[in-house]
């Protein structure tokens, strides 16, 4: 759901270790990278690495039909062009959903119906970028010494509250990290000084800093990213002065990492 706010179609790359998704929004300002590891599933089998091209808006709608207690089974046969979702095959209400792929990683030789040709036109948007930062984001407990200048860890609910509140007041926010303080402050029009009504930094904030950073971001994207907050109790903000912000949510089965390009000209 939190991905479908940013990107409408994306490839779920399935292999025997995990399912990964990586996609940029149309404006190329934000990128979302998701990984769900095989151990995170009750059972998982992937005989051949394949991309499942899915319209995330439709997938979100179909998943909304699931109840929390449902067990959802995702299936895609080797040569199929549908993703099959089944909720709780045991329960009286058997609900198979068949889901047309946006894109199926068939080799170029097989004849593509026109629909696929349309989708293949979309492909360049989904080509996986080599995120030069990806090796720099060990979202584990180990602090990435030479990777980011700072990392701020805070309760995800607090981050959601802060960006939501600030988004009522303005479009951009400056995030400034120094040794002891994280300033997340709304930027007023150039004429007036920067806003002093910072959000009081909540408890449970851990600041790791190698170098002072200060960047400005669009709040619209941060609010979108914060929709992933329900997946993890805490969120990590990793920043360096000349790279995109990384908003990382770790959860047992994997992670959601959101990258956001800063505004120009601080």
């Amino acid at each position: 759901k939190s991905c479908s706010i940013l990107v409408t179609d994306a490839n779920f790359e399935c292999n025997e270790e995990n399912i990964m998704l990586q996609a940029m929004d149309n404006s190329h300002i934000a990128l979302v990278s998701v990984e769900i590891g095989a151990p995170g599933f009750t059972s998982y089998r992937c005989d051949r690495t394949m991309p499942l091209g899915v319209d995330l808006t439709s997938l979100t709608k179909v998943l909304r039909c699931a109840k929390d207690e449902n067990i959802c089974t995702l299936k895609a046969a080797d040569e199929a062009d549908v993703l099959n979702l089944v909720y709780d095959a045991k329960s009286a209400f058997f609900s198979p959903f068949f889901f047309a792929f946006m894109w199926h990683g068939r080799d170029a030789s097989s004849p593509f119906p026109p629909f696929f040709l349309l989708c293949s036109a979309l492909l360049p948007l989904f080509i996986h970028l080599n995120i030069s930062l990806s090796s720099q984001t060990p979202i584990t407990s180990s602090w990435p010494e030479t990777k980011y200048d700072t990392r701020v860890t805070l309760p995800s609910a607090e981050f959601t509250r802060i960006v939501r509140d600030l988004s009522q007041l303005g479009e951009h926010v400056r995030i400034e990290v120094s040794k002891e303080v994280v300033r997340i402050s709304k930027l007023k029009a150039k004429s007036s000084a920067e806003d002093e009504d910072n959000d009081s930094i909540p408890t449970g904030v851990v600041i790791e800093m190698n170098q002072h950073v200060s960047l400005t971001f669009s709040l619209k994207y941060l609010v979108n990213f914060s929709k992933s907050g329900s997946l993890s109790g805490e969120v990590q903000l990793l920043m360096s002065n000349d790279v995109p912000l990384l908003v990382a949510y770790d959860f047992t089965q994997g992670y959601i990492r959101c990258y956001l390009a800063p505004k120009i000209g601080d």
Binding site: I29, L31, I127, L129, N130, S132, L133, A261, K263
Partner: peptide
């Protein structure tokens, strides 16, 4: 918009 970087500026695409 004008005063916003794009990610392509930072990420190397293949």
């Amino acid at each position: 918009n004008s005063n916003q970087f794009q990610l392509d500026h930072f990420f190397s695409s293949p």
